[in-house]
């Protein structure tokens, strides 16, 4: 592999990738730096293996200095989408929306509609947890209706769990470097994000097999 070929490829990366971006941090012009900007999405088995955990992070690169003023947007719903029959259309959703000092979690439940527009699930699927204020002990006491008993939630600031030498990646695509450093430097070290963590019994989202899942942010119209 000739260096010139690699450099050509890297020059093209710069064209393809455009501006500074990472896992999904500031990934596109319309959401960049706004209250609906998703930075990351995780889905993994809980400490209790009967449960699955969903994590959505928004509004990345929050410094400790700016953390006490960071807050969720009351007009932005964070929605976890769950497809259980491999057609990439949501069969269940979990919706998170701030209400005063609380984060309200609706579902998992069959959505009222699928696609680009959503309405809130019925209140009979509601859980609620107080949003943890910056610098205070994490709150995870979740109040559930009977239909969503077993759902546990957290909402508040966390360390950004994403790690990457994004600065070096940027230099490489800009043609200012030709290799990553070893060891690299975590560009996201020391920064916070606003996190919503929801742990649900697997029985509420299909029980067994493989699901396809994705997170969306949707703004109240």
């Amino acid at each position: 592999m000739k260096t010139s070929k690699i450099l050509l490829g890297l020059a093209t990366i710069a064209l393809v990738s455009g501006a500074i971006i990472a896992a999904d941090h500031i990934d596109a012009p319309d959401v960049k730096g706004g209250t609906s900007d998703i930075t990351d999405f995780y889905a993994f088995e809980g400490a209790n293996s009967s449960n699955l955990v969903f994590v959505a992070n928004v509004q990345g690169l929050i410094s400790p200095e700016n953390s006490s003023s960071a807050k969720f947007d009351k007009n932005v719903m964070i929605e976890f989408n769950i497809d259980t029959n491999n057609d990439n259309i949501e069969d269940y959703v979990i919706q998170a929306i701030p209400n005063g000092d609380n984060m309200e979690i609706y579902g998992p439940a069959v959505p009222n509609e699928t696609g680009v527009n959503s309405t809130m699930l019925d209140a009979k699927f509601k859980s609620s947890v107080a949003i943890t204020a910056y610098g205070t002990t994490q709150i995870e006491a979740t109040v559930n209706t009977s239909l969503v008993s077993g759902v546990k939630a957290f909402a508040g600031l966390r360390d950004d769990p994403f790690f990457m030498d994004f600065a070096k990646y940027s230099e490489i695509i800009a043609g200012e470097a030709t290799a990553f450093d070893n060891p690299g430097t975590d560009t996201f070290a020391g920064t916070n994000v606003l996190s919503v963590v929801v742990e649900v019994p697997k029985t509420m989202i299909g029980g067994t097999g493989t699901i396809n899942t994705w997170v969306t942010t949707k703004r109240k119209q």
Binding site: S17, A23, V76, M77, W214, V215, T216, T217, K218, R219
Partner: peptide, 19 residues
Amino acid sequence: KAVFALEDQMGRPAVNTVF
């Protein structure tokens, strides 16, 4: 029932960023 309209979404990491 207020309508909420899609603004951002993500499945796998860095896909929109890279591709």
